[in-house]
């Protein structure tokens, strides 16, 4: 009897969860798909790739929660984007903002984005992806000499320097190659 109750509860929870899952795609498609949802949703927006990608990796919207993108993709904020002027015309900015907010970590069902969403649910919106608690924890064993002291890396912010499939939204350990250090069993 107790087990039946638990199953019913679980089913109810799944069903109520489906509403927000629709934001990404059909919930039932998501439910039966075990491969596509592990990482971060790849960028599927031409303007995003062009505008963000002309200066740095076009970081996937699923790497930060919506509240972070809302702060970053603002006219005033972009005029001083980590020390650089990254101003955009109004129409482009509006379109990119919509894209970011619709695909932000807290709207995504991709596993890595879910973790980022959880890690940033409370408190201030991080402006840098490397400030996200989950991302920090994942890099705790990466020493200074591999990043700052490594002339071919310089900063943790340049994901694609070591994450060879970052552009496809894939960040798992097996795809890591740290310049001058190698794969993930570098120590």
């Amino acid at each position: 009897m107790r087990n039946t109750f638990k199953t019913a509860l679980l089913a109810a929870a799944l069903l109520t969860g489906s509403g927000s899952a629709m934001a990404e795609e059909n919930f039932f498609l998501w439910l039966v798909n075990f491969t596509r949802q592990k990482e971060v949703q790849p960028v599927d927006n031409k303007a995003w790739n062009e505008e963000c990608g002309s200066c740095h990796l076009a970081y996937q919207p699923g790497l930060l929660p919506g509240k972070s993108w809302a702060k970053l993709l603002d006219e005033k904020a972009l005029a001083d984007h980590f020390g650089e002027d990254a101003s955009l015309d109004d129409d482009t900015l509006k379109a990119l903002r919509v894209y970011a907010l619709e695909n932000a970590a807290d709207k995504s069902w991709h596993k890595r984005s879910r973790k980022i969403a959880q890690a940033t649910a409370d408190g201030e919106a991080p402006l840098r992806i490397v400030e996200v608690r989950y991302i920090k924890r994942k890099h705790h064993d990466i020493t200074e000499k591999m990043i700052k002291g490594n002339k071919d890396v310089k900063s943790l912010s340049y994901c694609n320097t070591c994450h060879t499939k970052a552009e496809e939204g894939i960040y798992d350990e097996d795809t890591v190659d740290i310049p001058n250090f190698g794969g993930h069993d570098y120590d």
Partner: peptide, 14 residues
């Protein structure tokens, strides 16, 4: 032209 103006604005400022 739009692209040229965009980069003039950014890069002159930088």
């Amino acid at each position: 032209a739009k692209k040229i103006e965009k980069w003039f604005k950014r890069n002159c400022n930088d």
